[in-house]
Design a protein around this nucleic acid. Structure first.
Lengths: 195, 195
DNA sequence: GGACTTTACCTAATGTGTGTAGACTGGCGT
DNA sequence: ACGCCAGTCTACACACATTAGGTAAAGTCC
């Protein structure tokens, strides 16, 4: 019985797989140890504690998602880039629900300061190049896009759309079209005169 | 030492308060028992198990939020109704983070089938009356609004906006204006011809 | 008003999970 | 060959969820 030597990377990868299978909240050191045919305390040589392990999953997910987004928007602009960006998120959230869930929480500094996080900012910025927005509005557009995409996927995941027709896919497409239309005709400041 | 008799309602209310103070994930039966000056197992006479307790918090939060939304959009239409609706959500999420968090998860049937849930659907529907959308598009608009609002609040809560200027409030206002503009000029089907 | 039931709490005990301390081992450099 | 040391183990302490069964007081029936 040959044993692959334990490393933080192996443990975190196993944890991420477990998260995808049973849900992020159910990731437990004992379960991971069992899957790696190891006693639970052995894990503590490589991982500080459970919080650090979960942060590891977050960092992993962030970097995986950034990779996917990068290839999804490469060579595209405008609506196509937006669709690629959004679709990459959605596919990831459906394929790897546990990993995706690990992103929906306040992350530890390790994850926040990772290179993947910085990469992500750059990618979202690149996405907006295809739409010409006043520089001061870029942040708001970024935040809006993030809110809508993440919000949609979150609601889809928790089943908010299960009790009405039609299936989420249809609304998803509509939502992306709406976002594109919005970015194309970004409301100018004059409109804010209303109160 | 007179003791207020334990009931499911009291326990759930205490749990909700605890959730607001220490975070939804940290709601523990022992902590609640301590706060109520009672032994942990005593709670089981009134609450089936932890899952049921959390569902109770969700149902409570749903009904509280529905109440707030109701007064926030009463007598308003269009942009003002949208703002009221959104603002009610935001205030709730900031005032009662734990309760709000309890809504960001797949809920048990008890919460889903509660009258508050049905009330909520009616309220959102009422909100859209002020914008005249083709009937088939109403669902999509509902889902889009929900996605964006919930998504924004979720990102704000986990600190996604902490690393860039300006403060979230500004983007929040912009986001609501954008949503309003979008609903006012809902993209017609012809626009979907692109691919 | 006494016997009984019900209610609402208790104590005791089990199982699972996190995390620490210290013993054991097998490969490595010298 | 010898000791070092990284990495694993066993043993343990503690927290929480949950079950079982006991007890005492309040309410109900005759």
């Amino acid at each position: 019985m040959k044993r692959i030597p334990l490393t933080a990377t192996v443990i975190i990868a196993e944890a991420a797989d477990l998260a995808d299978e049973t849900g992020f909240d159910d990731v437990t050191l004992s379960a991971i140890a069992l899957r790696l045919s190891v006693q639970t305390p052995s894990l503590y040589s490589h991982v500080r504690d459970r919080a650090a392990l979960l942060d590891g999953i977050t960092a992993l997910a962030l970097s995986e998602l950034a990779d996917r987004v990068a290839v999804a928007i490469a060579g595209r602009a405008g609506r196509l880039a937006l669709r690629g960006f959004a679709e990459a998120h959605r596919v990831y959230s459906l394929e790897s629900p546990g990993r995706w869930q690990s992103l929906q929480r306040r992350a530890g500094t390790a994850a926040v300061e990772s290179s993947a996080a910085r990469c992500f900012v750059a990618l979202t910025d690149a996405l907006l190049l295809g739409y010409d927005l006043p520089p001061g509005e870029r942040v708001h557009a970024t935040r809006l896009i993030g809110s809508t995409i993440n919000g949609f996927l979150a609601l889809e995941r928790i089943g908010s759309f299960d009790h009405s027709e039609p299936p989420p896919e249809v609304s998803w497409r509509t939502t992306l079209d709406a976002l594109d239309a919005l970015l194309r005709a970004w409301p100018t400041d004059t409109e804010k005169i209303h109160r």
